[in-house]
Design a protein around this nucleic acid. Structure first.
Length: 739
RNA sequence: GGGCGAUUAGCUCAGCUGGUCAGAGCAUCUCGUUUACACCGAGAGGGUCAUAGGUUCGAAUCCUAUAUCGCCCACCA
């Protein structure tokens, strides 16, 4: 009797999601009431804090798909009696957003300095807000049943307050301190980076052999005899740093150089006398076995310098330009430029032996791929050793688990090897570190002095200078699970913390989950979550990494428009398993679209068969206790099995199972059987009523168990049933196999 | 240099604690003018489960090597 369109049209997805959000059942408080009203059992709340996407651009396919994991388990939990909170948010993404926005400005011929700090902040804020709106719409399009009434931005003052509290506590306990040491400076982003923000990339480079002549005549002669030249030859990939050399190191076991240890060489060009020292770290096999030591611009050399009490000579500034106590002609040069100029001069002096072209690993900025400059600088550090230790204990005790297991070992390794975390960034976009220096920051760093914590200066004396650095983004997002819930003591926190599960892409395991675990344990004494599920990475169709620059990225909108969200979700469940990569396969998504349509048509067929006069009786029967037929029994087992798969995070198996069962059992066999059984039967006959009731009941239970995976098509069919009085409410809030 | 993981049909991959495990989807081929659906139905072909050993009554599944690929970590100048 029903006249439904012949094919499911995914255009209606927007109306469907409006039903969900308008119902407010995505709010666990509201869901609790709903369960009570309908006489269902209310179980423990289930909470997932969603990873906040960066508010500086569009969501890519990976973000959007990732949420289908949060959503499938969230919906399942909601449908099994757990008031469920999927808490959404957006990340200000300090360095990345600042980089993106500065680029925008540059295109308009402006710089951030033109705007000034305050105006800049305002503009970036606006920029983020418009992106956030966009991102939210994309999240809704995949069907994410998140509670948007609780949505937060990482720079929300409520969150900043909690982040500051953590900072004060850590400072007072001595975990946070200011220290002068060698840091990773990105000359492009103009800020310090934590070790973890640095990546290694193979780049072409040079390996230059340079002679450092001995100071004493006698040494020169001896060297000539033993080494062939009047000095010691060092090999380096970065000749420009020689301007800051304060020693030459050799291995104490190295017979070639033993006699020269303690002697002095004359640093060419600069004409500075520096000692030859012995250090075990020096590898006899590399280069000439003698290495120049530049404590100011190499982490290794910094350590050697500390050990041997060497002078630290700064010759490169935070912009990657040559500065300091160096010959005038090199000042202001970029490092590469300087390297070339130096090689030329050395060659003219006969001190350049040779230059080899090599490939080597270079440390680069994770965001802009600019090679980082190690420089000496004062920064804020967090001593994470005690926090990491607690995290490790929780892993060892089996309280914290990572899926897949292999990544758990990686996390253990990370915690074991963890170094102090540089948490200050020289950016404008972010949370200002709440510190005031009496008499100025420079004075404090040079001679020490008074410091005051707080958002405002302790008094109006005018003596206090505000810290201008901001926190590393991860310092605040590391507190996300409890800060979004209002922090210890608040109502939501008491109800929903700790959460159960964290799901995100595996590339941010160390940046994010590791930090959340440490910060959570620190601030709340509890793990912020117990399971970490790492999603697979989506790749371009050819198996390469998707990137805008390569032009091989697939836009989510394209897929949504063409195949609908359900098809995309189902593809993701089966292909993007933890630990694996998933190249986008359009044919497969298309195949899922066919399944979506199959569900639609099977439902449509059943409704077509039911006559208006039979509705009331059928409705009565499916609402009352049905006789347990073989088919119903089998369906119950099916639902149970799928539930187990979801609870074990085996979404791929769950997806396969619902497809297999609905298509090849329910449609191919049962519908066909019923079709045959009622053929030629009179309308309203007991036989018809009985079969059709059973079929409708089975359909409803199937829709329920399919719903977490494919919410749109199932909900839209459910609403057709509601229209006919065969169902009530939203499918989203129904309870599995509940009668 | 260290660690982790992968290697199963043309493609993308399932296969949990060893015994109907040789599978799914897509692709291919054949047949079907059935009134839910051609975004369909019925069926077919296709893999010595990377290689070599080993444990076992029995291994894709456990162990040991080898090869290839991928990812992560790492200060080798």
């Amino acid at each position: 009797m029903q006249e439904l369109p012949k094919a499911y049209n995914s255009d209606k997805e927007k109306e469907i999601s409006k039903l969900w959000y308008d119902s407010e059942l995505t709010n666990p408080d509201r869901m609790t009431e709903h369960l009570k009203e309908t006489g269902e059992k209310v179980k423990e709340p289930f909470t997932i804090i969603l990873p906040p996407p960066n508010a500086n651009g569009n969501l890519h396919l990976g973000h959007v798909c990732g949420y289908s994991f949060h959503d499938v388990i969230g919906r399942y939990m909601r449908m099994t009696g757990h008031p469920t909170l999927l808490l959404p948010g957006k990340d200000h993404a300090g360095i990345q957003t600042e980089t993106v926005f500065v680029k925008h400005l540059k295109e308009q011929g402006k710089s951030k300095e033109d705007l000034g700090r305050e105006k800049f902040y305002e503009e970036v804020y606006k920029f983020c807000m418009s992106n956030i709106e966009n991102a939210r719409e994309q999240e809704k399009r995949i069907g994410l049943s998140a509670d948007y009434s609780r949505e937060l931005f990482t720079l929300d003052p409520k969150l900043t307050k909690i982040v500051y509290e953590t900072f004060y506590k850590m400072f007072e306990e001595g975990l946070i301190y200011r220290d002068k040491r060698i840091i990773n400076q990105c000359p492009n982003c103009m800020t310090a980076l934590a070790d973890i923000d640095v990546e290694h990339e193979e780049r072409r480079g040079i390996f230059a052999y340079i002679i450092y002549p001995f100071v004493e005549e006698g040494d020169r002669k001896l060297a000539k005899k033993l080494l062939g030249v009047e000095g010691i030859t060092v090999a380096t990939t970065r000749p420009e740093t020689m301007l800051g050399d304060t020693a030459v190191a050799v291995n104490p076991q190295d017979e070639r150089y033993k006699v020269f240890v303690g002697k002095k060489v004359l640093l060419p060009i600069v004409e500075r006398e520096i000692p030859v020292i012995a250090d075990e770290e020096t590898d006899m096999e590399t280069g000439t076995g003698a290495v120049k030591v530049t404590p100011a611009h190499s982490p290794v050399d910094f350590e050697i310098g500390k050990k041997h009490n060497l002078e630290i000579v700064n010759v490169i500034n935070e912009e990657g330009k040559m500065v300091g106590d160096i010959p005038e002609r090199f000042k202001g040069m970029k490092t590469v430029e300087c390297s070339k100029a130096l090689c030329k001069e050395l060659d003219e002096k006969g001190l350049l032996v040779k230059i080899e072209n090599i490939k080597h690993e270079v440390a680069v900025c994770e965001r802009c791929r600019t090679p980082i400059e190690p420089i000496i600088s004062n920064q804020w550090y967090l001593d994470v050793s005690s926090l990491a230790k607690k995290a490790l204990e929780n892993i060892e005790e089996g309280k914290l688990k990572v899926f897949p297991k292999g990544q758990q070992k990686a996390l253990v390794h990370f915690f074991e090897e963890i170094q102090p975390w540089c948490i200050s960034r020289q950016l404008w976009w972010g949370q200002r570190i709440p510190v005031w220096y009496k008499g100025g920051k420079k004075k404090y760093d040079e001679e020490g002095g008074d410091i005051s914590l707080g958002e405002n200066a302790p008094d109006n004396s005018g003596e206090w200078e505000a810290e201008t650095d901001v926190f590393d983004t991860w310092f605040s997002s590391g507190q996300w699970p409890f800060s979004t819930l209002g922090g210890p003591g608040s109502k939501d926190y008491e109800k929903y913390y700790p959460t159960q599960l964290m799901i995100h892409a595996r590339d941010i395991l160390f940046w994010w989950s590791a930090r959340m675990v440490m910060m959570g344990l620190y601030r709340t004494g509890q793990l912020p979550f117990f399971d970490i599920f790492l999603t697979g990475m989506i790749l371009a169709p050819d198996g390469s990494k998707m990137s805008k620059s390569k032009g091989n990225s697939v836009e989510p909108k394209e897929i949504f428009d063409k195949y609908g969200a359900d098809s995309l979700r189902l593809w993701y469940y089966s292909d993007a398993l933890p630990g694996s990569n998933a190249p986008v396969r359009e044919e497969k998504i298309k195949g899922n679209r066919n399944f979506v349509n199959k569900i639609w048509n099977a439902s449509r067929f059943i409704l077509m068969n039911v006559q208006e006069s039979e509705l009331e009786e059928i409705s009565r029967r499916i609402e009352s206790r049905m006789e347990e037929t073989e088919r119903i029994k089998e369906t119950k087992e099916h639902v149970k099995k799928v539930g187990e798969y979801i609870e074990k995070y085996q979404f791929n198996l769950g997806a396969e199972k619902i497809r297999e069962f609905f298509w090849h059992k329910f449609c191919d066999i049962w519908i066909e059987q019923v079709k045959e059984s009622i053929e030629g039967e009179e309308i309203g006959s007991e036989r018809r009523i009985q079969y059709l009731s059973e079929l409708l009941y089975l359909l409803k239970e199937n829709l329920k168990i399919i719903h977490p995976f494919m919410p749109f098509v199932t909900e839209s069919i459910w609403q057709e049933l509601v229209r006919l009085g065969l169902a009530k409410g939203l499918l989203m809030s129904q309870q599995m196999m509940s009668r």
